[in-house]
Amino acid sequence: MRRAVHAEWTKLRTGGGILLAPLVLAVAIVGLGAVAAGTAKAGADPGRAALAGLDLGPAIVALLVALPVGAEYATGMIRTTLAATPRRSAVLAAKAVVLGGPVALAGAVAAAGALLAGRWLGLDLGPSGAVLRAAFGSTLFLVLVALLALGIAVAVRDAAAASGVVLGLFYLSPVLVPLVRDPAWRRHLEQITPMNAGLAVRSLHVDGLPIGPWKGLAVLAAWAAAALALGAFALLRRDA
């Protein structure tokens, strides 16, 4: 497992430019958060404003994950990988570590930066417990998105298809769910779609949200677990 992680890290590091993605992720989250914080209306949730950049998170993370994984299948290099590390579960776990790690680091820096920028721009963040929850939860949100994207990418074996699925999963539901007329149904859908549920954690005032912050992350974690299970099934069962 240690050797598999080392190999995956070297592979990611030398793949050309992909390590810029975490930087882009952090800059986007802090930058967009600062804009939202500066223009936030009175009464808006300060966490939602400061961490508004998280809306872009799934898009950037999906590319960060789908591009290197898809390229490995497109070139056929996956066979070299699986010949070098025949324990396929170890390959998947190693990819999760090397893709999730930089996302976690960038996410933590970005969330802390965005919240600090928000306070500096005049947002009243309130008690530090909720602020810490939002920072930690936002980081976890991005890591779970990365794991979900990894599962999808390994299952569909193609960068474009994988990013399409992930983008659809995260960005279609916020557009489609408000179109549902029945309020009970709408609330229910907001509780189980990955974007709405997962982003509950960035709010500082959680009363009245369709789903609680940790429960929301648990929903996203379930999505990620299902995607990883799908990826693992495909990787373990299919011929390379």
């Binding site: 592979k11 490995e72 070139t75």
Partner: peptide
């Protein structure tokens, strides 16, 4: 397969 390489590496 000698072609199974990522061109950017």
């Amino acid at each position: 397969d000698a072609g199974a390489l990522q061109p950017s590496r």
